[in-house]
Amino acid sequence: MADTIKIQTKTKKQKVIADVALIILLIAAAVGAYFFWLFSRDVGAYAVVYINGEEVARYPLAADTEVTFNTPDGSSFNTLVIRDGKADVTDAGCPDRICVNMRSISFEGETITCLPNRLVVKIEGGESPGVDLP
């Protein structure tokens, strides 16, 4: 019984080699996709702030500024700082403060999200402001 199985299927060693090859291939694909993304992205022009999915403010990345947004019920806040062409949330009243720990953003499509305060800072392009899909 064991012999017939051995004849029909590949050995365990061959399969492990195939597994490792598959994993290496997938990692290579991930790294490739990452570098493609890294070199194909464009520097954005505006930091756009959304609260509850609605745009509330838009700041050019070229000008340094610091603004604080209170949540609609006033219980919490997020501080947005734009410096050296990068937008960053430097302080927040939300409990998890994930948004504060997120890196500063400057490329088109990058976002900083604060789920408890329902606030999203998104970098958008400069060519056609307002034309972008929501």
């Binding site: 590949k10 365990k12 399969k15 195939a18 597994d19 598959l22």
Partner: peptide, 10 residues
Amino acid sequence: DTFSSVGVSV
């Protein structure tokens, strides 16, 4: 029949 269950599930 090339991969083990690890490869398949990956």
